[in-house]
């Protein structure tokens, strides 16, 4: 395991833990998702750079396009949640609990 491998793995796991364990704002959850996507972008680009495979260096760009789509859908949901629930606190999303 190289130090680069270790650091982006750690970055991804940190983002995942932050998303999973404690969020007060929906926006913070979206930021954690973006952090996970950022570490994936770095991982994919470093993989192509290390192996010098030209055809794979399109993969990080496609990933970035998709993560932009995901982020904008998340922000649209943030707006919709702020409209219906009045706030973006995740603890207010409790209408459907068993």
């Amino acid at each position: 395991m190289t130090p680069t491998h270790f650091s982006f793995t750690t970055a991804f796991i940190l983002g995942l833990m932050g998303l999973a364990f404690h969020r007060t704002h929906l926006l913070s959850a979206l930021l954690c998702l973006e952090g996970m996507m950022l570490s994936l972008y770095i991982a994919l680009s470093l993989w192509t750079l290390q192996l010098e495979t030209t055809c794979y260096s399109t993969a990080p760009m496609l990933l970035l396009a998709f993560s932009a789509c995901e982020a904008s859908a998340g922000l649209a949901l943030l707006v919709a949640t702020a409209r219906t629930h009045g706030t973006d606190h995740l603890k207010n999303l409790n209408l459907l609990q068993c």
Partner: peptide, 13 residues
């Protein structure tokens, strides 16, 4: 909207 938000978060993760 709440169901959509929850679905989006889980599926994106």
């Amino acid at each position: 909207v709440e169901a959509t938000t929850k679905y989006f978060l889980t599926q994106a993760t």
